[in-house]
Simulated scan of single mutants.
Amino acid sequence: MPSLRIMPKVMTLTDAAAARVSALIAQKPGVKALKIGVKKGGCAGMEYTMTWAEEIGKFDEIIEEKGAVVLIDPAAMMYLLGTEMDYKTDKLSSQFVFNNPNQKSACGCGESVNLEPATPPGFAPAEA
């Protein structure tokens, strides 16, 4: 029997993030999850993306936590490995916040970030 390989969790959600995701999905008929990804853009190089998913893709990573369902786009997995998703509210705004150990910097406006792919234990870093 082959040994099981334990995969690290791509992302975790705080109680606040899970509650907000669940509440938003409940308001959207036909939506199964919130899908998180990254794309090139902004002054720091990359931006987080969030879209509603009516279907779960074959290679999407499924995060079911505290009643919320979040999908991770396959192309974003190595950039999001180890990330904690939070939801914060202050006097002027409410927003999802990503506490990402792969983030090396962010732009001044907070709209874009500089991300490097994670290198899990046992993997060699990418050659430049």
Rank of each mutant, 00 (worst) to 15 (best):
V113M: 13
F98T: 03
Y48E: 00
L81Y: 11
I25Q: 00
T119S: 13
C43N: 13
G41E: 02
I6G: 06
A23N: 12
M7W: 10
K91S: 15
A16F: 01
I36W: 03
K66E: 02
I72R: 01
G30W: 04
R20M: 13
I72P: 00
A124C: 07
D86I: 07
G82L: 07
K58Y: 08
P74G: 05
L24K: 13
S105H: 11
V97R: 01
L80W: 10
K104C: 06
A124S: 14
A53T: 04
E47I: 14
S112Q: 06
V10Q: 04
Q103M: 15
R5P: 00
S112H: 07
G45T: 10
F98W: 15
A76W: 00
G42Q: 02
E47P: 04
G41H: 02
G67N: 09
K9W: 03
M7G: 07
G57T: 07
P74R: 10
L71M: 04
P125I: 05
I62Q: 12
S22W: 02
P101E: 08
G108H: 04
E84P: 01
F59I: 04
L115T: 01
P101D: 07
A126I: 13
P117Y: 11
K91A: 15
S105L: 08
C109W: 03
Y79G: 01
E111V: 15
V21T: 07
E127R: 11
D73T: 08
Y87T: 06
L24D: 15
K28S: 12
Y48M: 02
L81A: 10
V21I: 15
L115S: 01
F123T: 08
T49K: 10
V31A: 06
C43H: 10
A23K: 14
E127K: 14
G42I: 04
F123N: 06
